[in-house]
């Protein structure tokens, strides 16, 4: 008897309370290697909290996480990073007064030994940073620029580049296209296609539903801290997803004709 390989990520029974607010209650999520999962829901539905739990930034009150069939207990983002789970945070998580290369390599700066001391390998950092940016099509003229001098789109690109460039198994993107211009959004969608084709499991959180239909295999809908629906992309439409997100039949014109855009 052959068994199918375990999913790359399986989260079951995840619950999280913040004081009186139950942010997540008995939430599950699975992700296969190479799969792109769209995670949608109204503001406050708990998408960011669920993804932060998977990235180790938030510790759940209950529930289990398995990576490739092995139960893990992330107590810090370092643990998740060690299991090659990377995340682009909605609130970007960049250091304004550190330069571009420093932010790209934050937490894993290359070092070289100088007289036995492990010092930062700055030439390599800047060289590799340049290569990373070029590979992702991010236009930033100088990797020695401080991040505070960059535009919102450039900052977002750096956060994405940092998560995507270190060979992740799971890549979580929490509203990565919020500050991006048209061409940059296309570049991000392209990046998602490319990394998922290479076997990376991607979780994409976005309010741009048309994007989901361009890259996702599956969509999971959350409502007030619970899973309410899961659809394969070929079995659903933007109109249905909108209904599921708001929790009732929604007669908005913005949802009406968007189906056509995807075909």
């Amino acid at each position: 008897m052959t068994t199918t390989p375990p999913p790359r990520v399986r989260m079951t029974g995840i619950s999280k309370r913040y004081g009186p607010i139950t942010t997540l209650s008995d939430v599950s999520l699975t992700l296969a290697p190479g799969e792109v999962l769209g995670l949608v829901g109204d503001n406050g539905a708990g998408k960011s909290t669920l993804s932060k739990i998977l990235s180790g930034a938030v510790i759940p009150d209950a529930g289990t996480i398995e990576i490739d069939g092995e139960t893990v207990a992330f107590t810090s983002p370092a643990d998740a990073r060690a299991r090659r789970v990377e995340m682009v945070y909605q609130d970007l998580a960049l250091c304004d007064t550190v330069d571009v290369a420093g932010n790209l390599f934050l937490g894993r700066e290359p070092r070289r030994r100088v007289a036995g001391l492990p010092l930062l390998d700055k030439p390599r950092m800047h060289g590799d940073a340049r290569a990373m940016l070029d590979r992702l099509g991010i236009v930033i003229p100088d990797t020695r620029q401080k991040v505070e001098t960059l535009s919102g789109g450039q900052r977002q690109s750096i956060a994405i580049g940092r998560a995507a460039s270190f060979d992740p198994l799971v890549l979580i993107m929490d509203e990565p296209t919020a500050a991006l211009a048209v061409a940059e959004v296309e570049a991000v969608l392209d990046l998602i296609r490319r990394v998922s084709a290479a076997g990376v499991g991607v979780i994409l959180i976005t309010h741009r539903l048309q994007d989901l239909f361009l890259v996702c295999d599956r969509i999971q809908v959350m409502y007030e801290g619970r899973n309410v629906a899961e659809r394969r992309i070929e079995d659903t439409s933007i109109a249905e997803i909108v209904d599921l997100i708001v929790g009732h039949k929604f007669e908005a014109r913005s949802a009406g004709h968007s189906r056509e855009q995807t075909s």
Binding site: S55, A57, S76, P77, A78, A80, R81, A82, M87, Y89, L92, A93, L94, C95, D96, T97, V98, G102, L106, G107, R108
Partner: peptide
């Protein structure tokens, strides 16, 4: 320097 700029960002980068 990073902690002074954005402590949470440094924490999320896996630094203690």
């Amino acid at each position: 320097t990073g902690i002074g700029a954005n402590r949470e960002a440094v924490r999320r980068a896996g630094v203690d």
